[in-house]
């Protein structure tokens, strides 16, 4: 399931709902991305007071659905969930939730890791940071591209 929304989400409620009514599920793996208050590339010197996430409505949902379908092809999952927020967020705010449910932990953990790695390089979102030196657009990290290629 895919959701792209401005509003926050309740992690506990979302994970409960993912497994509800399916006693085959033996485990849920999850990843929660948060807004941090520094920029990785700036070596931690640049304080980030807020982040604005822009996305490409339509293509975002399409790409997330493709990534989710790919995870289902690769692992025996009973359920998967991706929630990604957009708009202005502050340090500590939740940005993204990826959760996967399966009878066994291996599939759930691997698929969850796969989903967040692919999401970072394939879903059309862009972050702009508010710093003491003004607004700056976040640049893509080479490590993210390498992480995605590691799943081929």
């Amino acid at each position: 399931m895919i959701r792209v929304q401005r509003e926050d989400f309740d992690i506990g409620a979302e994970l409960d709902r993912l497994a509800a009514g399916n006693p085959r599920i033996g485990g849920i793996a999850s990843f929660v991305g948060l807004v941090r208050d520094f920029n990785l590339e700036a070596g931690g010197d640049d304080r980030v007071s807020a982040l604005t996430l822009e996305h490409y409505p339509g293509m975002t949902e399409k790409k997330l659905a493709e990534i989710e379908a790919e995870a289902h092809r690769r692992w025996p999952l009973d359920a998967a969930l991706i929630i990604h927020r957009y708009g202005r967020l502050e340090p500590g705010d939740r940005i993204v939730l990826v959760a996967t449910a399966s009878p066994h932990r291996e599939a759930a953990l691997a698929a969850c890791h796969f989903l967040i790695d692919w999401l970072k390089t394939d879903a059309p979102f862009w972050k702009s940071e508010e710093t003491p030196r003004g607004e700056r657009w976040v640049e893509q990290r080479a490590q993210d591209d390498a992480a995605r290629k590691g799943w081929r």
């Binding site: 490409y56 399409k62 999401l119 394939d122 879903a123 059309p124 862009w126 657009w137």
Partner: peptide, 26 residues
Amino acid sequence: NQDYVERDHPVRGGDEVAIFPPVTGG
């Protein structure tokens, strides 16, 4: 039309063409 393409991909009348920097979500 909402799929990533290379530079040699054809452009036709009525297409939706989006131009943007590398993505930074997640």
